[in-house]
Simulated scan of single mutants.
Amino acid sequence: MDTDTKTVVHGTGQPQRKLADWLWRPWFAKLWWIAIPAWWVGMAVSSVVAPLESFYDSALAGFLNVLFFPMTALMVLGLGFAQQWLARRPIYGDGEGSPQFDINPDPFWSEIGTRKIGHPLPLVDMYDPRSGGLFIGNPESFQHPDRS
């Protein structure tokens, strides 16, 4: 294993490539990074050379401006690094199989398929006791008949 370009990811034993390996090592990355300054130098020269000016004013050149924008190359070439970096992180829980939080973020989600059209969630239904302070039978509710 080449120690100067790869480090071992803890727990997996697989080598992890550095960001520079994704941004510069592939042949197409080198070609792209070399073409970017060539494109922008050509655009600067187009202000004095008429045939280049007509090309750089075209719609195709507008699309190529996006292709040869350095941030576009950085995002596209860095995508492989981001995927590898996210793949080595646990998707759920602490990585050992246990969840980090044992809460139900939406206790009424299971009722989505059983409710009829036009019926609100119990959370906002003033006739449902599960709606808390909104429930009409709650003495603290503003809709309670005995509230003065």
Score class of each variant (00 low, 15 high):
Met1Leu: 11
Thr7Val: 07
Val8Trp: 14
Val9Phe: 05
Val9Ser: 02
His10Asn: 07
Gly11Glu: 01
Thr12Trp: 00
Thr12Cys: 00
Gln14Lys: 09
Gln14Tyr: 12
Pro15Asn: 08
Gln16Ala: 06
Ala20Thr: 09
Trp22Gln: 12
Trp22Leu: 10
Trp22Ser: 14
Trp22Thr: 06
Leu23Thr: 12
Leu23Trp: 13
Pro26Asp: 06
Phe28Tyr: 01
Ala29Lys: 04
Lys30Tyr: 08
Leu31Cys: 06
Trp32Cys: 03
Trp33Asn: 13
Trp33Phe: 15
Ile34Thr: 12
Pro37Arg: 09
Pro37Thr: 10
Ala38Thr: 08
Met43Cys: 09
Met43Trp: 12
Val45Ala: 09
Val45Leu: 10
Ser46Gln: 13
Val48Gln: 10
Ala50Tyr: 05
Ala50Leu: 04
Pro51Arg: 00
Pro51Trp: 05
Pro51Gln: 01
Glu53Tyr: 14
Phe55Cys: 02
Tyr56Gln: 14
Ser58Gln: 15
Leu60Asn: 15
Leu60Ile: 15
Leu60Ala: 15
Ala61Trp: 13
Ala61Lys: 12
Ala61Gln: 11
Ala61Tyr: 12
Gly62Tyr: 04
Leu64Glu: 13
Asn65Leu: 08
Asn65His: 11
Asn65Arg: 08
Leu67Cys: 13
Phe68Arg: 05
Phe68Cys: 07
Phe69Asn: 09
Val76Ser: 14
Leu79Gln: 14
Ala82Leu: 07
Trp85Asn: 06
Leu86Glu: 03
Leu86Phe: 03
Arg88Thr: 08
Arg89Ser: 00
Arg89Glu: 01
Arg89Pro: 00
Ile91Trp: 13
Asp94Met: 02
Asp94Gln: 02
Gly95Trp: 00
Glu96Pro: 01
Glu96His: 02
Glu96Gly: 01
Glu96Gln: 02
Glu96Tyr: 03
Gly97Pro: 03
Gly97Ala: 06
Gly97Trp: 06
Ser98Ile: 02
Gln100Met: 10
Gln100Gly: 11
Gln100Asn: 10
Phe101Ala: 09
Phe101Gln: 09
Ile103Thr: 11
Asn104Met: 14
Pro107Tyr: 05
Pro107Asn: 07
Phe108Trp: 11
Phe108Thr: 08
Trp109Asn: 10
Trp109Thr: 06
Ser110Met: 04
Ile112His: 11
Gly113Asn: 15
Thr114Gly: 04
Thr114Leu: 07
Thr114Ile: 04
Arg115Asp: 04
Ile117Arg: 09
His119Met: 15
Pro120His: 11
Pro120Ser: 13
Leu121Gln: 13
Pro122Cys: 01
Pro122Asp: 01
Leu123Arg: 13
Met126Pro: 12
Tyr127Asn: 00
Tyr127Cys: 00
Asp128Met: 03
Gly132Arg: 04
Gly132Thr: 04
Gly132Asp: 05
Gly132Cys: 04
Phe135Val: 01
Ile136Ser: 05
Asn138Trp: 02
Ser141Gly: 05
Gln143Arg: 11
His144Phe: 14
Arg147Tyr: 12
